[in-house]
Nucleic acid binder design. Structure first.
Lengths: 136, 136
DNA sequence: CCGGATCCTTGCCGATACTG
DNA sequence: CAGTATCGGCAAGGATCCGG
């Protein structure tokens, strides 16, 4: 679990601090765009505009915003080439790579359970169409 | 990756449909509360109020909302006991359990990299305090 | 090409009150 | 105890313009 129990041990102040930090990081990382960006980067080095094409559906603003956040957490590295027009490249750092592995697992899970989930949806949708007293 | 390239093969309509579904599921699942709820459930069977206590910080509304969503996707099972006062229990289904494993990995990652991330933050924060021309 | 800043819309989410 | 419905504030996020 991310959240630990409060045991009342001597230096639990440290524990709670680390805990809230974990929560914060978790919240940063557990968001759609961040995950998609990391997955899009993979082991590659991509420019800003390339990333925008890769992620598909992300807006200019969300991309920069998340890139800043990821850089701030040390998950990606940003390299600026002082040329004109500007060239900026993004790549995963080591922690970023490690995170990507777990995100890959998440993607695998999604694909492996597509069928089951689709079926479950049809079931609950059908149930919703029956039960309501507003039948007919 | 969740998003596949458009290759122009025969029945790519199916592929794109499955793809958009994957995206949708990914968006459902890649949200803070859903992840925390699944992690809180673990292998256990919990009542609504127990879940609310476990998740810490979640509101009544967000909890029900996400529980409905997770049930709709077949990741959790909802059992209602027709007693008074009402007793409703939630548990992970098999797909839910599988997902939990990958979420565990995410939690592990968070804890293992707490230090590196904290360090990275201090570095970029320090850099932000230097560079601005608004120095002093 | 990159990205900051601004405006404006949308919907998220919390608080509250009410049913079974 | 569990769940729905409604309202309101506020922040997320899209579109656009400008500046390096």
């Amino acid at each position: 679990m991310v959240t630990k129990q409060f045991t009342g041990s001597p230096d639990d102040a440290d524990l709670r601090r680390a805990d809230s930090l974990a929560r914060e990081i978790f919240s940063d990382v557990a968001n759609k765009w961040a995950l998609l960006i990391i997955e899009a980067l993979g082991g590659r080095v991509l420019r800003f505009s390339e990333l925008r094409d890769e992620v598909e559906g992300i807006s200019h603003k969300m991309l920069t915003q998340n890139l800043r956040m990821l850089e701030h957490n040390g998950l990606i590295e940003r390299t600026v080439y002082p040329v004109v027009p500007p060239r900026v490249e993004y790549a995963l750092t080591e922690p970023g790579q490690a995170l990507r592995v777990t995100i890959d697992a998440l993607c695998d899970w999604t694909h492996r359970h597509l069928g089951q989930i689709e079926a479950a949806r049809r079931r609950t949708d059908a149930a919703a169409a029956d039960s309501p007293d507003t039948e007919r």
